[in-house]
Structures are given as C-alpha cells and as structure tokens.
Computed example of a mutant assay.
Amino acid sequence: MNGPFTASPGTSAVYRATLQALAENGPRRTGITQIARAADTNRPYLYRNWRDAQSLVRQATLHELKRVLTVACDVRDPAPSPHCLTVQSVVRAARLAREHPVVRTMARTEPALVHSAVLRPTTSWHSMVWHWLTEHVTYHLPRGDAQDAATLLVLTVALPYALTPPTEGTDEAAERTATNVRLASALHAVLGLPTPCPDCTPPPAGHPHRPTAVTAHPQDTDSFRGSTPSPSSR
C-alpha cells in the first residue's frame, strides 16, 4: 500500500533525478537534458510524460515539499505539550528545508528567487505550506480571519529560517541549535505561548538530550540521495 508521499516507481525515479539536477545545477540551469541525464533516460521519454522542464520541476519539488512536511510531523517520544508540538513541527520543517541540497543551491545561485519567495508568498509551494499550517499549527483557531492572521504570522516568521541555508565553513550543529532556538522563541511569541518553554529549550550542558520533534532521526534525509534507477521501463 502506498504511503502518504509515495508516487509510482517510475515517477519517483524521475522526481529524484529532477531534485538531483536542481541540487547540482540550480533552478535556471536545470532543463530536460540535465534531468534525463540524471535519470539515466532520454528526452523523448520525459516529453511523453511531462509538458516541459518547468512542469516536471514544479511536480517534483511539490512532491518533495509534501514529504518534508510529512516528516516534520513525525514525532518521537516523549512528545511535548500539544502547542509546543506545533512549534517544534514548524522548527523541524524549516530546518529540513534550509538544509536541503536544492535550497542550498538555490540560495547560492539564485538569491533573487529566495528574496521573492520570502517577500511574495503566493506560489503553489506557499499554498501547500499554508494548508499544512492550518492543519497542524493554527488548527485550534476559528476558521476565518483569526486563523488566517495567525497562519500568515507563522509563515512570515518561519520563511526566512526555511530559505536561509547554513553558512558554509561554520559549525553547522551549533548554528542549527541556535537557529532552532531563535525560531522556536519567535513562534512561541506569535502563538501566545509562554517562553522560555522547557519542552523547546535545549537541556543544560551535561544533561542527556530529550528526543523531541526537532531531534534528527533517520527520516531527516533527502529522498533523492543514492542511486537513481532508470525509469525507462515504466
């Protein structure tokens, strides 16, 4: 039985290849030729199944975003309080996004796209995130103006964190912890939750780390890493 973000085997292979090409070349230099090479297939096969490279990139990245958001909600015990769980899900989703190879390459090669994504949240990718936020973060608010206002605040606060990759050459683990704490504090303020929160604050030095929703685990990986099987037999 297919999981929540499972495509057919042939399509999954092409999506992985598309993400790989994006991570290697950046969005403006990724075309059908680069994707076909990464997928170990040919251009006619891709054109039979997708109108053009833009359509394929859109589908592959939306599919990957859905996977990231699904993984962000996969909580390990012991779970924090419900409201802090929503905060930690957003923090984890933002971390998975900013550490994703596609986002890293986009930020390096096309900073104008990142700037636009932060300031003009009106794309299909933003719509998917908006729906996820209303289902998992602002669900407790009455639908309408109150929920829309809170969802927009959360999206506005989280987007810069999600689209600003770690600084190259720095201690990524330390930067990750500091970034997660700043974002969690900001989200607590936006959602009217008390700070500092024991469920979201890292334990003191020398104390064992609590396994919470923002702790990395095996699913915190990029789905397209590894070999890409040929889809030509689909």
Rank of each mutant, 00 (worst) to 15 (best):
R210V: 00
R143H: 14
T228L: 03
T30Q: 09
P203M: 13
P218E: 15
T70S: 14
L119Y: 06
A94R: 07
E64W: 07
N180C: 02
T86L: 04
N25V: 04
V14L: 11
G144P: 13
V90K: 11
C84G: 12
V154S: 02
L119A: 11
I32W: 04
I32F: 10
E64V: 04
A178N: 09
T123R: 12
A174L: 06
A158L: 01
H63K: 09
G144N: 13
T228V: 15
R225A: 15
T195E: 02
A162G: 01
T164N: 02
A93S: 14
R108Q: 11
P111T: 00
T18P: 08
V102K: 01
T228N: 06
A107W: 03
A184D: 04
A162I: 01
P211V: 02
V90E: 12
A149Y: 11
A178M: 08
P229Y: 08
R225P: 04
A174C: 04
E64D: 12
D222S: 15
A93G: 13
L183V: 02
S116N: 15
E64R: 08
L191Y: 00
A174W: 07
G3P: 06
L69E: 10
P165V: 00
R108Y: 05
R98D: 00
L193S: 10
A107N: 03
V87C: 11
N25P: 04
A39G: 10
T61R: 10
F224V: 00
L69S: 08
R67N: 14
I32Q: 06
M1I: 11
Y15V: 03
A149L: 12
T177C: 03
V87T: 09
T195Y: 03
L119T: 13
V157C: 01
A21P: 06
V75R: 13
G3A: 11
H126R: 05
T30G: 10
M106W: 01
H217K: 09
G206M: 04
V181F: 03
T164Y: 01
V90Y: 05
T134V: 14
V129T: 14
G192D: 05
A178E: 14
P198F: 12
S124V: 13
A173Y: 05
A162V: 00
A112E: 06
L119N: 12
P4T: 10
H100V: 01
R176H: 09
R120L: 01
A184K: 05
P202C: 14
V68C: 02
R98I: 00
R37T: 13
S233E: 10
V75K: 11
P194Q: 12
A107L: 01
E175Q: 13
Q20P: 03
A213K: 00
T30V: 07
L69R: 09
V91E: 11
D220F: 06
A60I: 06
R176S: 08
